[in-house]
């Protein structure tokens, strides 16, 4: 697992669950500032093309968001896929 970059005053903290963590090959990422969730998704899809085939929901500071949403500096962004097992 790659070493996590230290947080800077402008970075954001991305955490991933389930098969999203498998596809981005880590449970946590520190990224330089991303203005909104669309820019973040564009970046993630470019870095990890496999992600495009997986549905997931996004939470910003522990609240689920829908559509293009502004990301505050220092935010924690979670990438949350559905599970079906039981």
């Amino acid at each position: 697992m790659p070493k996590l970059e230290p947080m800077t005053p402008t970075s954001i903290h991305v955490i991933a669950f389930g098969m999203i963590a498998e596809k981005i090959k880590t449970k946590e990422l520190v990224l330089e500032y991303m203005p909104d969730t669309e820019v973040l998704l564009g970046y993630l899809y470019q870095q990890f093309p496999d992600l495009k085939q997986t549905k997931f929901s996004i939470a910003l500071n522990k609240k689920m968001v829908v559509g293009k949403t502004f990301i505050p500096v220092g935010a924690e962004v979670a990438l949350l896929p559905p599970f079906s097992g039981g």
């Binding site: 389930g18 549905k55 929901s57 689920m64 949350l80 559905p82 599970f83 079906s84 097992g85 039981g86």
Partner: peptide
């Protein structure tokens, strides 16, 4: 509201395919 469209069966495997320790469920 969380996941509007169902994933396909290939997208997300279940316990029969990926395994699970019994204590988790």
């Amino acid at each position: 509201d969380i996941f509007p469209d169902p994933p396909t069966a290939y997208e997300i495997p279940n316990c029969n395919e990926t395994g699970v320790l019994g204590v988790l469920p």
